[in-house]
Nucleic acid binder design. Sequence first.
DNA 1: AGTTTTATGTGAAATGGATAACAATGTTTT
DNA 2: AAAACATTGTTATCCATTTCACATAAAACT
Lengths: 223, 223
Amino acid sequence: MSSETLKIPQATAKRLPLYYRFLKNLHSAGKLRVSSAELSEAVKVDSATIRRDFSYFGALGKKGYGYNVDYLLSFFRKTLDQDELTKVALVGVGNLGTALLNYNFLKNNNTKISVAFDIDEAKIGSTMSGVTIYHMDDMEKVLTELGITIAILTVPAPFAQSITDRLAQANVKGILNFTPARLTVPATMRVHHIDLAVELQSLVYFLKHYGVNEVEELEEVEE
Amino acid sequence: MSSETLKIPQATAKRLPLYYRFLKNLHSAGKLRVSSAELSEAVKVDSATIRRDFSYFGALGKKGYGYNVDYLLSFFRKTLDQDELTKVALVGVGNLGTALLNYNFLKNNNTKISVAFDIDEAKIGSTMSGVTIYHMDDMEKVLTELGITIAILTVPAPFAQSITDRLAQANVKGILNFTPARLTVPATMRVHHIDLAVELQSLVYFLKHYGVNEVEELEEVEE
DNA sequence: AGTTTTATGTGAAATGGATAACAATGTTTT
DNA sequence: AAAACATTGTTATCCATTTCACATAAAACT
Ligand SMILES: NC(=O)c1ccc[n+]([C@@H]2O[C@H](COP(=O)([O-])OP(=O)(O)OC[C@H]3O[C@@H](n4cnc5c(N)ncnc54)[C@H](O)[C@@H]3O)[C@@H](O)[C@H]2O)c1
Ligand SMILES: NC(=O)c1ccc[n+]([C@@H]2O[C@H](COP(=O)([O-])OP(=O)(O)OC[C@H]3O[C@@H](n4cnc5c(N)ncnc54)[C@H](O)[C@@H]3O)[C@@H](O)[C@H]2O)c1
């Protein structure tokens, strides 16, 4: 059970990067203070939830005043380890992988795709946005050399599991999985699924079956 | 108004497309029946949760036997409106938008990006993967003509809100938002955020602070 | 200085969802 | 056809998260 940081709820942890991003916006805009109500309006999270989230880290605000933007910002910078660059690998430089490669995650998070892998000879050896694309055969070697423990997976689904097994061997601890495959991993690894087809399909389902609030007020009908 | 389909929990609704996808796999593989335990192994959802999810739709299985793959598949096809093609629009044909355009959502869901919009004159009028790219000026007109009510948003963040307002005017009801902006929408609309930077950053946070079961001897997943 | 306003931090309650456990019931075996 | 077996559907329980609501304290105003 690691870490000094007492375990905050996962739901809270997922919102931290969001808070951080908007605090940076506020800072750039020259704002000196912010209330949970204002922040709520910006990030679309209930203000009580924001206060509760912040409270896990102690008393960061002042009653009757709100939160000091600079203080909060530097607190979250530390909490999110934004002083240290996090290097990640990209596996599969196709349509989606290329889009991710060209995106500058550095700008907002201190995170960078530092290396990429593929099997397409046409791509291997070249660089995209300054990132070298290596052959899959060299994956384990390069990853361990660079000490990379996080990978983004954008290969065709049938290869996802076997590549995941190799990543596990290479000491990778986290995978951002864009393939539709549901990966089996050792308990020491963590996978975040970003399943675009599911997102799209479930949005369709919600719209068709939850008929967005059209009649909202009328319903009290408990069955 | 929200349909005869009693309102199932949102968490369940989000899993339906996943179940559907794996049932199709099973069907293709020639499987005739499946138990909640088998399905659980495949989709990585607890078997009790699967049974609970299914039970919202009535008794779909048989005790001592499991579920008939064909029956379940056709039931979910209907439930997910997979007989009817759902047309969606793409706004912003850049790095990410292009990747999405080139992806065939039709293959798995009966969903298709049918039209795209941009402001880049170099792209306007051309087609990508058979999809015509129109000028933003024509957006409202084209959307209402085609009766499209779902849009994927992949434009630079500063434009996200104003375009969203226009989409709302054009009777769009659902947005799949890839921009880091948190959109303000009328109560009649639904937004699903896919925030790639947040996903990546929160994965990093979890790995650093939740120290994935390093020493704790968690036994392997059953099998 | 005193009063009013503002907004935090947090107990308590409400909501929403996941899981354990098992009786019920059908299937398969002998 | 009876016994053994498998697996559902569901009840009860648990857990995580959200939200309410307000005492508290600082800030702003007069
Ligand atoms: N593009 C999208 O919008 C989209 C949407 C939903 C899901 N996905 C999923 O994301 C994944 C990637 O999609 P894509 O559109 O970028 O596919 P793609 O075919 O364009 O790219 C796949 C890349 O992986 C490489 N590759 C193939 N086999 C490999 C292997 N064994 N090892 C390493 N690299 C290998 C290919 O050379 C190619 O560069 C797929 O699983 C797809 O289902 C993509
Ligand atoms: N590419 C990624 O991997 C990635 C990752 C995280 C977030 N995002 C977000 O997704 C969005 C798109 O990213 P991208 O990398 O594709 O950007 P991009 O710059 O490659 O593409 C943006 C596209 O939008 C078009 N556009 C600009 N202004 C427009 C307007 N007013 N109306 C219509 N179209 C307009 C541009 O012509 C361009 O084609 C951005 O908000 C970005 O922050 C992208």
